[in-house]
């Protein structure tokens, strides 16, 4: 149960930024665009960030990671839930690495 000063300041600043955004929406409610370009941009950020995280991780791996990524995607599409998809991916990469 420890926290380093660096971790504490990182978490505090992350929390402050997130809270400021939440309050900002309330304060600026009447001036924020609900539709249009800026709103669409903000809505697309989380998906694009995740895509940017995933693509290099898969591309830098071996064929085992690529196969496991495909298994993860198929299981997620079939079950629509995170946990089985992650578990299937982990099992798939473990097995695939035995052969690669």
């Amino acid at each position: 149960m420890t926290v380093s000063p660096e971790a504490l300041s990182a978490i505090a600043l992350m929390a402050l930024a997130t809270y400021a955004i939440r309050v900002g929406g309330l304060l600026l409610a009447d001036r924020l665009p609900r539709e249009g370009f800026v709103a669409a941009w903000l809505r697309h950020i989380p998906g694009a960030v995740l895509a940017a995280l995933v693509a290099p991780a898969i591309a830098s791996g071996s064929i085992a990671e690529a196969v496991a990524a495909a298994v993860t995607a198929l299981v997620f599409i079939a079950t629509r839930s995170l946990f089985p998809a992650m578990a299937a991916g982990v099992v798939a990469v473990y097995i695939a690495r035995l052969f690669v």
């Binding site: 995740l50 991780a57 993860t72 997620f76 995170l82 998809a85 991916g89 798939a92 990469v93």
Partner: peptide, 17 residues
Amino acid sequence: GLDFAFTATFLALLLGM
């Protein structure tokens, strides 16, 4: 194979969006 859990989780989160 748990190091792959990160990539698998991010991929599943992405597909869920």
